[in-house]
Structure formats: structure tokens, C-alpha cells
Design a protein around this nucleic acid. Structure first.
Lengths: 221, 221
DNA sequence: ACAAAAGTGTTATCTTTACACCCATGT
DNA sequence: ACATGGGTGTAAAGATAACACTTTTGT
């Protein structure tokens, strides 16, 4: 969502010959077996206390991708995040402050990354499956992003962005099962994923688990 | 590309707090076994006589999709065109007139449609494979659209938009072969396409061909 | 000893690929 | 009669799906 307070944004909208441009980031994380969404409480009266995406107006001297990177840096302290443009939303009535067209990016981040900190008390990780509505048209956008994520997951090596560098095949499968909303057969999953991508055994084992530890792997491009 | 003359556009860019928004349409057609692109000569000094896409600035009272529909209606007289948003381009230096962010749509149209007429002398169908450069960042955009088209063709029933309602399987395969840039085996293609989509024999034959006429089919959703 | 997940192979089914001959039409 | 593409089946290879038991660790 837009970071400016309502009155400041309305001024900007008026001054831009009718159309303002913003960038929104749909940030997915994975934790405790669940797909999570980085959410911020809306500061708009109309959507008071509803969740929305992090975002910002597009500065005149920054391109959309750089703006999305800056938004993520500000909210999470992370650089080098997997970030992909999904779609642009420009319905006339989508924003109560006036005409705002927003370019939506999807980010996949590792919730356990040692550098991750949420630099805003209003920002939180929310279980995607618990979200039934959001501010603005963000719920619709979320559905589009989930559809994109499902499709992309089946063909591209994007799941690794949600995990730490070294991971077990169980963790990897948990990511797939959460995003695709189905439990796959363990043996078939392992066979397929190992033949689909270059995944290397790093000769280490997971620790601090209450069961037989699994081998650790890494993904290599 | 943008329809306005250089000076008018520059005024608009200046008045919009630094960022103007436009819509560009990458329009594909299929004719004589070749994938064609609807092109217009650029009217910018810098890109004089180079091809560009049809497009327009986003009016304050129209959403991006409706704007794309209006552009196509104006240039081709066609309504009800298959039209899908692909990506938004906003590099700082992409347009010589200043800061212009453009939302790109891809359209697939039937070149033989009885209503199709190009309402502009500067507009033409160009063989996609003959295009080596374009104005602005349009060549890069074209490559992205071709990549999208290839990927989408393999899974969604979009090829039919490039053909007339009734078509032969040869014509359909020509579309696939042109977009995927490979000649597939005829028997395998027929088996696959008939099992993938609901394609019905309309009990008619093609006419005016110098060889054994093929059956006509139609696609049903 | 028990609970929890790791690790592993085979078989059946489905999908994909490679491949060649006769047929209908126009010239 | 010839040139052009229409129409069709089969077999081999590869991909996917279903399925169960033994092992390792922590408690």
C-alpha cells in the first residue's frame, strides 16, 4: 500500500494531471510450514485496520523496479531479494484518494535470513490462508499473485528463495505443498525435483530436530 | 507508440509531476504462414522511420484496458479483440520526450476478419522475423511479448484468435509452427491438439485450394 | 520402547516421439 | 500423370503415479 498519509497523497494525485503511479510489493515468506504474506495495516479511514501490501509512490527520478527494491530495503532491511513484476492495476475506482495506477511486484524472501528485521511496528507476517479480505483491490491482487506463484513454481526454480541456502528435501517439499495446496508423494517429489534442478548434497545434516536428521542440500543455478 | 506529436506530449509530461503513463499494444496477426506485427512509423525525430507499436497516453478518465481497447478500435476498427496485459516498462530514459511509463498489452487478431481495416496510412503488418530493431525500447518489449506468446501458446487456447472461426488443422499447425519456430510432426500435432482443446469438426471442407481440401474445425470453449 | 520423519525401488499407466503410406483435389 | 497437402496408426521411450518397509535420531 501507499506509505504516505492520506492528505499528502491526495495532494500528489491532484498535481499529477489526474494519474498517480505507485509500486506495491506482494512479499511472500515461508515459516512453520505455512506460506506467509508481509502485510501492513492500512492507514486509510475507509480500510481502517485492514491488511494491505507495502508500497510507495513512484518517485520522478526512480524506475519502478528500483522503487520496489527501496520499499523492501526500508521494510525488511534486505537487499538482493527475488523480485518480479506481476501486473499493473489501474481501475478508476481502485483507490479512495483518487486516480492511482499501481505496478505490482512479487517478492520471495527467506523469513529466517539473519539480516531480516521488520522496520515498522505495523508490518507483520500473516498466514496467507487466513486472509479473507484486504484493503483497496489488494485481495484480488493477492489472488493473481498466488496464481502466478503456483504456475511459476511448477517450471522455474523459485522455491529456493523462500528457504535458507542449505535446506532439507522435507523443507523444500513443504514449500511446494504449501504453495500448490496438496501433499505430494515424498518419493516422487524427490525424484522429480532432483532431476528438474541442479540440487547438490552439501554433506551436512540438519540439527536440533526431534527425529532422524535429514541431509542438507543447496541449489546451484 | 504514443500518438501525440512531440510537442504536445512534452507538455503533458511536464504537467504531470514528472511521470506520464501510456498504453502500448503489441498486436500480432497471422498471414501467409507468417507471424505479423502491427507497426506504425515513429514520428519522433530520434527514431524517424523506425517501427513502433500503436499506443496512446492514458486519459485521466479511462482505465488501461479500456485505453488499449480504444487504441485497437481506432487503428483496426475491431472490437472484441483478445487482449492481455503483459508488462509495464518504466526505465528513466526509455522515452526521449521525458518520463513515460508504459503499460504493454498484447493483442491477437485475425488478419482476415471481414471488419478489419487499417485506419491509418502509416500502419502496416510487418513480418516479425524481419524486424531487427524498433523505436524506443520497443524491440526489447517485442522480445518479451514473443517469449510470453510462446509460453502461453503451449498451455492456453490462444492460437484460435489468430484464425477465422472455421479453420483447417493445417492452418492451426502453421500458427503453432510459426510461433514456436519449429515444424512439428503432423500426426502428433493433430493428436495432441485434439486432446488438449475442444475442437469440433463442422462438417465442411476448405475450398479454392490446389490440393486435397481439408476438413474445417471450430474451437469451442 | 516409542514417536517422528529420513531414505529408498518397482511396477503400471500415461504421454510423447518417431516414422510411411494411400487419398483427394487442381493443373 | 503429377504435384500438393489430407488423413491416419503403431511401437518404443520417457514421464508420471501409486505404493511400504527399514533406519536414525530424541525423548
Amino acid at each position: 500500500m501507499l506509505m504516505k498519509s492520506k492528505s499528502i497523497l491526495e495532494d500528489e494525485v491532484k498535481s499529477s494531471s489526474g494519474v498517480a503511479l505507485s509500486v506495491d510489493c506482494v512479499v511472500f515468506g515461508f515459516d512453520e510450514g505455512k506460506l506467509k504474506l508481509l502485510c501492513i495495516k492500512s492507514d486509510y479511514e475507509k480500510y481502517k485496520n485492514m491488511w494491505s501490501f507495502v508500497g510507495n509512490l513512484l518517485p520522478a527520478d526512480k524506475d519502478p523496479y528500483a522503487t520496489a527494491v527501496a520499499v523492501l530495503k526500508k521494510k525488511t532491511s534486505l537487499d538482493k531479494i527475488f523480485l518480479q513484476q506481476i501486473k499493473t492495476y489501474g481501475d478508476l475506482k481502485r483507490h479512495p484518494a483518487g486516480r492511482v495506477v499501481t505496478i505490482v511486484y512479487c517478492a520471495l524472501i527467506n523469513v529466517k535470513h539473519y539480516k531480516l528485521k521488520l522496520n515498522d511496528l505495523e508490518v507483520a507476517w500473516v498466514d496467507v490462508n487466513d486472509i479473507k479480505e484486504m484493503a483497496f483491490d489488494h485481495y484480488k491482487i493477492l489472488q493473481d499473485c498466488r496464481a502466478w506463484l503456483e504456475k511459476e513454481l511448477r517450471v522455474e526454480p523459485i522455491a529456493f528463495n523462500l528457504l535458507q541456502k542449505k535446506f532439507t528435501l522435507r523443507e523444500l517439499q513443504e514449500v511446494y505443498d504449501a504453495i500448490l495446496r496438496e501433499k505430494q508423494d515424498r518419493r516422487n517429489f524427490r525424484k522429480k525435483i532432483l532431476s528438474q534442478f541442479n540440487i547438490q548434497d552439501v554433506n551436512e545434516m540438519e540439527t536440533n530436530v526431534t527425529h532422524r536428521p535429514g541431509k542438507l542440500y543447496k541449489f546451484v543455478r
